[in-house]
Design a protein around this nucleic acid. Structure first.
Lengths: 181, 181
DNA sequence: GTCTATAGAAAGATAGAC
DNA sequence: GTCTATCTTTCTATAGAC
């Protein structure tokens, strides 16, 4: 199988997304990537160290091919909101939210990574909004947009219903267009 | 100590809220209520059976002293939205959301209980809204309100910032008042 | 009803052979 | 670099004394 680091991290992400931090085991991960448990520990010192890697990979993928400053800001805003919403709907649940709820003082490096993950998402959205509104307001609007999308995953999990996510996306985009006028 | 059933369930809720389903242990719970582990198993057949009890208690508390049909629907709507938001802000995180993310096919009774919990919350909000808008729309609006409040807990967890929750509450109440006119 | 004691499985992590 | 084997702890859950 010859699993690469990125493949292991991607599998770890799946595992964390499905079972959460506490519910995911190194044995499960080893099985999924076709390695024995001790071989995992040659690449990662412990389970907690997987969390920053998982979130960094996810950030990279989320921002891939999203060109900044290349068009009107409302178009770019719509693109990033839809990118996040589509990813959440496809995967059913948010790895970041699951980890945010799952890590604690016992896992400080993981907790720091989660904070950084959401701050990065917010900042990226805020940067787009700042082209149309004042900076402080852009940050608040970005935060509110993000938590709305995240909240909508709750309904996907509990009932499989993606319409709250779709309504959140529509509402956010409409609000942005209203701000632009 | 002589722990009552309700006290045990309340402690279990704290534990689930802090550590999630997988991260909470029966040993921890036993320690918190001053019993030995086998004594817990005389009251609850297994860990999963705690979940429906925890959510039922939480529903009861959420709806306590919220009188229905006693005033204008916008006032009642504001009361229930604020009740939910205040509870979430005080407790920092949502037990229901944590459990929604934490239970799976391995714990079908718990998963069913979580679905029922959020359906009950939505229905209660929808009932209020139905006094002002058409029934289908009331259900959608109730769902959207609920997921917005739940999503705002993410920012409380990751940064301790309750302002996204406060903005969500203001926005929801403003929207309701606009609908009432 | 609550306890001591323990079973049996699984967790995170490491030693050391190859 | 990957493995077998193992350590230590912790988990859910139960048997059985009092």
């Amino acid at each position: 199988m010859k699993a690469t680091l990125d493949q292991i991290v991607a599998e770890a992400r799946e595992l964390f997304r499905e079972r959460g931090y506490a519910g995911a085991s190194m044995q499960d991960l080893a099985d999924r990537v076709g390695l024995k448990k001790p071989s995992l520990y040659t690449r990662f010192p412990n389970k907690e160290s997987l969390v920053p890697e998982v979130l960094a990979l996810t950030l990279d993928e989320t921002f891939a091919d999203l060109h900044e400053e290349s068009c009107e800001w409302t178009v770019e805003y719509e693109a990033i909101i839809r990118r996040i919403a589509t990813t959440l709907s496809d995967r059913q649940r948010c790895i970041g939210l699951h980890l945010a709820y799952g890590v604690s003082e016992d896992t400080p490096l993981a907790a720091t990574a989660v904070r950084g993950y959401f701050a990065a998402l917010r900042d990226r959205i805020a940067n787009v909004l700042a082209r149309g509104v004042e900076a402080n307001r852009a940050e608040d609007l970005a935060t509110d947009a993000l938590v709305r999308l995240e909240g909508a995953t709750l309904w996907i999990i509990t009932s499989g219903d993606v319409r709250p996510m779709e309504r959140a996306v529509s509402s956010l985009i409409d609000e942005a267009k209203r701000l632009a006028h």
